[in-house]
Design a protein around this nucleic acid. Structure first.
Lengths: 229, 229
DNA sequence: TTTAGTTAGTGTAAATTTTACACACTATAT
DNA sequence: ATATAGTGTGTAAAATTTACACTAACTAAA
């Protein structure tokens, strides 16, 4: 691709697939690019890694710049290093996924200059993405699915207090398949790391469901001898 | 660490954890470094990524330079990007594991200049490693264990024809635990992707075992609908 | 050829886990 | 009071996993 833009030699970046869960749907935060290349395209938020920061730090910073949020769950899942994945030069990128809890509104105010705006998109209805970001996204979903079975990542996407139905809907969204209600509940409760609260859902126009909390201490106790990697 | 060596700005490398299986033991190929920093230390083979090659290509090249082998199974498993992981400057490294079949001798003739020699080391008896390579190795083992349960990686480490006992010993070595012989065989054979040959082990001073082959075509057919990532 | 030594190869019963499946209860809104 | 919508619950069958020990086959040495 000939863009007329200045080329650069070689660089190193982070791209983030930011997942959120709302209204029974799994969503991803995309930015609309403000700059060439791929001006006006949707893309995963990302940026270059500075020389004086680790890639973890860079990922945290980039996420903060975009969402204003810190301390969310993040995990590296793959590094993409095709030569021509960026039209302006060699850019190797480490991809992270991030799981965030609060989805205030459809639009998020990005703090960076290269993004016009940021929107939540349902994962089953994504636009075409800039660069190789569609590949990066597809890879992220696969990793997420796999990790769901051996890491307590679902609770990073739910509010602190949640109902079993919400938890099940989230599992179904990530795995992209229906699960049996009774079996799901039986299984989840059998682990012993869900704490039933003396509280119920509010503001619903039907029978309110019990609320639960994820008890990380118990989780760690139960799985302390298992490998997590 | 002050070494007096020239510093460089920022670079990008590949490090490889090369696994082999011999005499019932899982082994890793380490090089003895010929250059500072960490001269005379054992290290994982690795090298810088050139600007005109993808990271996959670089990994393949580096592996070839060290072992003279091509077409072995390789897979990326993590990227290490702490700022000070390399004493001479910023080096971000993508770590791959490689699985290789033939272990001719204890020593491998490396083709590169920075390695004095290369030796197979039993994974339970590793020396201290240069840089953050011990961490990289530990991570590789965890990933290997996890992937063993959903990818047919064991067969990359065995000769084309193998006995069930060899296969079991390999599983035990990777998982670092004993398995029940009858249950292991029952399970493995039940998958249907092992082909029993009309041939037996040779050169053993006891009852020779049947040889089996991994039938990749059948494997793919059986697992075509499952995700592999 | 006999014997000792070594690994190969095999089956079953019990326990556990997974699956399939449907209806009464509770709360709200009208 | 009644219609509506989601909550919450149990059981039986099937499938999978686990625990467990001896005979068969072959080689090597006597």
């Amino acid at each position: 691709m000939e863009t007329g833009l200045p080329k650069f030699d070689s660089a190193f970046s982070i791209d983030c697939v930011i997942f959120g869960f709302e209204a029974g749907e799994l969503k991803v935060l995309l930015i609309e690019r403000n700059e060439d290349p791929f001006k006006d395209w949707w893309a995963l938020p990302g940026n270059l890694v500075e020389n004086d920061e680790s890639i973890e730090t860079a990922a945290t910073r980039i996420l903060y710049e975009l969402t204003g949020l810190r301390d969310m769950h993040m995990e590296q899942f793959h590094t993409f290093g095709e030569i021509h994945r960026h039209p302006l030069g060699r850019v190797i990128t480490v991809a992270y996924y991030a799981l965030i809890r609060i989805i205030g509104q459809k639009e998020v105010k990005p703090v960076t200059q290269y993004a016009k705006k940021a929107f939540w998109h349902a994962i089953n209805d994504l636009p075409k993405l800039a660069f190789d970001h569609s590949l990066i996204f597809d890879t992220s979903i696969q990793k997420l699915r796999r990790r769901l079975s051996y890491q307590p990542i679902a609770f990073e996407l739910l509010p602190e207090k949640f109902t079993l139905t919400q938890l099940q809907l989230l599992y179904e969204a990530i795995l992209s398949k229906k699960l049996d209600k009774r079996n799901f509940r039986k299984k989840m409760l059998s682990y012993g790391f869900l704490k039933e609260l003396d509280e119920k859902q509010k503001g619903v126009s039907y029978r309110a469901a019990k609320l639960y909390k994820f008890d990380r201490r118990k989780y760690n106790k139960i799985f302390q001898n298992d490998l997590e990697g």
